[in-house]
């Protein structure tokens, strides 16, 4: 068989390049630790908020506290269910072939876009519940009407946070749309 001189020359040239490698093992260990911390933080938030609301309801078993505990656990259940539904079948094995990996990446990207919408709806529901709860759990003498409550300085920071989160969500969704376009383009190409 004839030697392929051109390819051999390119191969020598290519393999002569040996860019320095960072300490990958240390980076992997650091990243793995961080991922564990994130999982622990998610569980911790669930336990603190969910457990805290139950503890409050047990310690002062007034109707509003019981309602708060029920509301918190309903929202935790909805959040975990949404998370489960969106992740179902979208786990992308790193060792899949390029085409299969791209298919799953596209699916994951679509799910992440749907998740942004689902999380926005969930946020609105939680916010609505919390505002109603705060309003009605205040002493009747301190209530000056729903409009005054919603436009008052005590609630202003909630609207500010909501606006910031809204802008971030829109930007994130746009980024995902662009990522989806790139992935779809790559998928067409590697067929």
């Amino acid at each position: 068989m004839e030697p392929d001189r051109e390819l051999d020359a390119w191969r020598r040239e290519w393999q002569a390049e040996s860019p320095p490698l960072p300490d990958l093992k240390a980076r992997v260990e650091r990243e793995t630790r961080m991922m564990r911390w994130f999982v622990a933080a998610e569980i911790l938030v669930t336990v603190v908020i969910g457990g805290g609301s139950v503890a409050l309801a047990v310690l002062s078993p007034a109707m509003d506290m019981v309602l708060l505990a029920i509301g918190v656990w309903v929202f935790i259940a909805i959040a975990w269910t949404i998370s489960f539904l969106l992740r179902r079948g979208a786990w992308a094995p790193a060792t899949a072939t390029t085409s299969a990996f791209l298919d799953l990446s596209i699916l994951r990207c679509r799910r992440r876009r749907e998740a942004v919408l689902a999380q926005a709806v969930l946020y609105a529901l939680i916010l609505g519940f919390d505002l109603v709860w705060i309003y009605f759990s205040a002493a009747p003498a301190t209530r000056h009407g729903a409009v005054a409550f919603l436009t008052g300085p005590a609630i202003a920071w909630i609207w500010l946070v909501t606006a910031v989160l809204g802008v971030a969500a829109v930007r994130y969704r746009r980024r995902l749309t662009r990522e989806l376009e790139t992935l779809t383009g790559l998928r067409q190409q590697v067929n």
């Binding site: 790193a94 060792t95 390029t98 990446s105 990522e179 790139t182 992935l183």
Partner: peptide, 22 residues
């Protein structure tokens, strides 16, 4: 094959996230 599959897949995902237009 295992190593290169992973490497190419991660590289593709990396490109998609870099938001460069095709």
């Amino acid at each position: 094959t295992f190593v290169f599959r992973i490497a190419h897949n991660r590289a593709i995902a990396h490109i998609a996230r870099r938001r460069l237009p095709l």
